[in-house]
């Protein structure tokens, strides 16, 4: 069982950072919807507040890890320009996708949108973490504040879903490859 350093980092970016981020936002949306339909206010214990705060901080941190590794580590490999007269574009995903009309939209729509929209989710979730940790009392008092928080959470979920979905599909159509080979498990012959 082998993979390259670039494949490993791409997996960390998408499946660990991005995957956790997406699941965490989904959990947050479920919790926000649930809290709108409780008959009495449920007060967390100090321990419960601490756990909730750490969940929110980690959620935002994973979002930033996902967008920064994507922008500064994975994306340069994805958009690397092939030398002139290169026939095999496998190591140049962007150019591989653009070389055929049936795959060009994965870049022109998928990657072009994903690389930006992921930041929407991250900015929104950072704001949500701040409001949910530091403005709990205001959230209880102002229904319009709760509406805004839920609206932003839904938008973050949709944005992250678009980014994750296109990321997975683009990497399936033209995977980022290269780097040193890492052998995880060697089967006996």
């Amino acid at each position: 069982m082998q993979l390259t350093t670039r494949e490993l980092l791409t997996a960390l970016h998408g499946m660990l950072f991005g995957g956790f981020f997406l699941m965490a936002i989904f959990g947050l949306v479920v919790e926000l919807v649930r809290s709108r339909h409780t008959s009495t206010h449920i007060e967390l214990t100090p321990r419960g507040r601490t756990i909730e705060s750490w969940f929110l901080i980690l959620m935002a941190a994973f979002g930033w890890l996902a967008v920064f590794t994507g922008t500064y580590v994975i994306y340069p490999w994805y958009r690397a320009k092939p030398p002139a007269n290169t026939a095999d574009l496998t190591a140049y995903p962007r150019y591989l996708l653009l070389s055929h009309p049936n795959t060009a939209a994965w870049h022109n729509l998928g990657m072009e949108w994903k690389e930006h929209i992921a930041f929407f989710a991250t900015i929104a979730v950072t704001m949500l973490a701040f409001v949910l940790i530091r403005q709990r009392a205001a959230l209880r008092q102002y229904p319009q504040l709760r509406n805004a928080v839920l609206g932003f959470a839904l938008l973050a979920l949709a944005s992250c879903g678009v980014a994750a979905g296109f990321g997975a599909m683009v990497n399936k159509a033209a995977p980022v490859t290269g780097g040193n080979t890492i052998t995880l498990i060697r089967s006996g012959q």
Partner: peptide
């Protein structure tokens, strides 16, 4: 229950939207 200021939360929400628009 005493009135809690919502200014900090409003600032966080509006500024996040401004950041997204700037992008």
């Amino acid at each position: 229950e005493t009135q809690v200021p919502n200014g900090p939360a409003a600032a966080a929400i509006l500024s996040a939207a401004i950041g997204c628009f700037a992008l």
